[in-house]
Design a protein around this nucleic acid. Structure first.
Lengths: 251, 251
DNA sequence: TTTGCATTCTTTGTACACAAACGCATAATC
DNA sequence: GATTATGCGTTTGTGTACAAAGAATGCAAA
């Protein structure tokens, strides 16, 4: 009976997670956030019933949220065997980054043409929040806000299919960063983000694209995709053995 | 009771529609095919209960198929108001074509690098089927096979995110062609497809990309996006008034 | 002790029932 | 006569029960 314990109800603070829409939006946002912040490690099993109890909704809602996450390749939906947090392999990570370079280049060029000053100011506000998150040590929120910056930039480019694709790529990138980032320093990308906005506002396409490509290089270089590829690949393959599944709610 | 009439059962010939997987794959493929072949016109309402009776499954399955189609922007899911076949506007069509040029260019370059001879031969076989469909006057199947060619090419490129994005773009393109093609001659793209395969097999990236871009130009030029934009836009807006919803199964 | 098999138990897949929301039609009032 | 309010019918949204498919465990035999 879910009337008994329901730790989270519908009107749970949706502010942090963003979307304050319908129930499945809320569940989607919470699970997504938990994955990005590594409270849900790659390979963790996502039981429908457990999640339903946690969020105080039925499996129907959970199932829809998981289906959406699966479509973005953030969770893996195995028939008759449930959903797990995706464990992108090194090869998958490379493919995602290849696509992101392509998309980010196009988005940047379009944003130079179409982004309004209002949108650019909104982007600046997002970068400030991102910077604050990192400075306060909230790495998960920082990664999430960094991703939301790139998504917002796609929206400023004004091409709906690109936005949709970018959403999927950003989600996967966040997961990859969470899994592969060489930990020494968290990727403080907010400075590059600010320079990028300036170049876009100056309508300098060449400079903006150049900055974006360097930004991609920097993200790339912070990952251990090259040297530890073999070990990390194995690690990903056996992550359901090595890592403890921890499907607890935050708090 | 769905045991009474069930005009279509699970093992209905799935050969034509492709995916012979689970129930929702079958339903998805059938609806998608019907939309491509214009047996379901843009704006047509897709009632869950009606579709459930037609396919002999419960609304749960129908809902999942519709959700998947909605994610590919082939159907529009309006909250509390049901699903309708999408009516892409001229602006949406332009955005889809912009993205397709970007993706097709990348896919072509990757295919030149990675496509195996076996894959190229499979592609040639698909082009032959496409040609046969057009020559036998089956325009819907031709459009569908043309789309499947581009999807197969994306698979030959070996980049999973690109394949996923291409699937969505191809679906929407097919819908746009079905809606906007200036009818005089059906777009006999199979010749260009063959030349493209030859260039890829010759590992001539420059030539292959050039052919692909011209191919995109040709598809573009056959659509009435420029002149009849206003009228077609209005038509799309009021299609639910102008066109009779016909949610009948084929045959 | 280890391996193979069978049973049990957990978890997902599907269908269905009930509740809520929307649209339409009718009617009443200004 | 036009406009707005209200009631009804239809369709979608959600929860839940039942069925089926895996996974885990225990027992038996080698």
């Amino acid at each position: 009976m879910n009337e008994q314990l329901q730790p989270l109800k519908k009107p749970v603070r949706t502010g942090k997670a963003g979307r304050s829409g319908t129930q499945d939006d809320i569940v989607y946002a919470h699970i997504f956030e938990a994955i990005l912040e590594q409270r849900l490690a790659p390979g963790t099993k996502l039981s429908e019933e457990a999640l339903g109890e946690i969020f105080g909704v039925s499996r129907t809602i959970i199932r829809r949220a998981l289906s959406r996450l699966a479509h973005e390749s953030v969770v893996l939906l195995r028939p008759n065997r449930g959903a797990v947090v995706a464990s992108p392999t090194v090869e998958e990570a490379r493919q995602v980054f290849f696509s992101r370079r392509m998309v980010e280049r196009a988005i940047t060029e379009l944003a130079v043409q179409h982004a309004t000053l209002e949108q650019l100011n909104e982007l600046r506000q997002m970068v400030r929040e991102e910077r604050d998150s990192f400075s306060r040590g909230d790495r998960g929120a920082g990664i999430r806000l960094s991703g939301e910056f790139h998504l917002k930039l796609a929206e400023a480019a004004g091409n709906a299919p690109l936005v949709s694709f970018q959403r999927s790529l950003v989600s996967q990138t966040s997961l990859i960063i969470a899994q592969y980032e060489s930990g020494n320093r968290s990727h403080c990308s907010y400075d590059e983000h600010m320079q990028l906005i300036d170049a876009i506002e100056a309508r300098d396409a060449e400079q903006a694209v150049s900055l974006m490509m360097h930004h991609m290089d920097h993200i790339d270089s912070k990952l251990n995709l090259d040297e530890e590829s073999a070990s990390d690949d194995l690690h990903a393959v056996f992550s359901h053995l090595l890592k403890k599944p921890k499907a607890t709610a935050k708090g």
